[in-house]
């Protein structure tokens, strides 16, 4: 890494010339602008332009060779049962993942931080491992554990406790369960790390003071730990909500882009279907604008919360 960075790049003008241009380039005033050039370029080309283009596209019918403005027609077309289904699925998914991915990692982090827990490093590593797999690889595994066959692992476990086999991928509730389970499995370890870092920042004095007041373990958790973790809980929830609305792959690994009765259709899946598969770019862009508004609102709410916390301190 270092060797590749220490080789002078084209940004460094040849020293020999020593003319005005070189010294101008080398001045303390100009150098920072040279350093930020990559960002400016990528901002203009890879963010600003496509962003503006996406909004314009959402008012257009984009066909090869001819593109025309059609006003709000793409947005009017959004009012259809398939889109409602995508929004519904995504919302349920967000709610489930937020609850699971905040509560479970929080509890596990508290346990991992407790002096009563043995083998901490081993457990921490085990919880973190799933985060290293890609959604696709995780999907390969989940597909075979939750296969519809009676002999597949999940159905076998059901049989042991006396339940009937389930066609996991063919019904809305179990389909949602599969997506939530896959996402939770992959992300719990990462969220544990956030909470652990925050827990280790809580000063011991607070717990000692609580001890003097005669607080029990539960009271200490409720009155000391939880308030101290509030900012990180908000942060983790926000990320989970945003990532939830952007979900695509967790559905793709089970049904690609067409699930029975659209039980796996998500907002981003709908963008992909409309924009890439059906080449209906304008409509796809309109879905994208909708998605962006949701995410913007979530981000702003979070910023407001964080702002409020800063004032508290």
């Amino acid at each position: 890494m270092n060797s590749s960075l220490s080789t002078p790049s084209q940004q460094i003008p040849p020293e020999k010339k020593g003319n005005k241009f070189t010294s101008f380039f080398n001045s303390k005033k100009v150098a920072p602008y040279v350093f930020v050039v990559p960002f400016i370029l990528s901002f203009l080309i890879l963010y600003l332009y496509p962003f503006v283009y996406a909004i314009i596209m959402s008012f257009q019918q984009v066909l090869p060779g001819q593109t025309e403005f059609i006003g709000l027609q793409n947005y009017e077309r959004l009012m259809n049962p398939t889109f409602y289904r995508a929004v519904f699925n995504t919302t349920i998914y967000v709610i489930c993942t937020v609850i699971i991915l905040v509560v479970v990692p929080l509890l596990l982090a508290v346990l991992l931080n407790s002096r009563l827990t043995k083998l901490k490093i081993l457990f921490r590593t085990a919880f973190f491992m799933p985060a290293l797999t890609s959604v696709i690889v995780a999907g390969v595994i989940f597909n075979m554990i939750f296969s519809e066959s009676d002999s597949a692992a999940a159905n076998q476990v059901l049989a042991w406790i006396g339940l009937d086999s389930v066609d996991w991928q063919y019904n809305a509730v179990t389909g949602m369960f599969l997506m939530v389970a896959l996402a939770s499995w992959r992300w719990i370890g990462v969220n544990i790390m956030y909470f652990l870092a925050a827990l280790q920042n809580i000063s011991d004095d607070l717990y000692e003071a609580a001890d003097i007041d005669g607080a029990n373990a539960f009271q200490k958790f409720y009155y000391v730990t939880l308030p101290a973790l509030k900012p990180i809980v908000i942060f983790v929830s926000t990320i989970t909500i945003i990532n939830g609305f952007r979900m695509f792959e967790e559905s793709f690994v089970f049904w690609e882009t067409s699930s029975p009765g659209n039980i796996g259709l998500t907002v981003v899946g709908y963008i992909y279907q409309a924009g890439i598969q059906q080449n209906d770019m304008g409509f796809g862009a309109a879905i994208g604008v909708f998605l962006m508004i949701i995410i913007l609102v979530v981000s702003l709410i979070q910023l407001k919360f964080f702002g409020a916390f800063k004032k508290d301190e």
């Binding site: 332009y49 962003f51 283009y53 996406a54 924009g275 862009a285 994208g288 962006m292």
Partner: peptide
């Protein structure tokens, strides 16, 4: 800004 909105452009 979510990448997904920039994806089509």
């Amino acid at each position: 800004i979510p990448f997904e909105i920039l994806m089509l452009p």
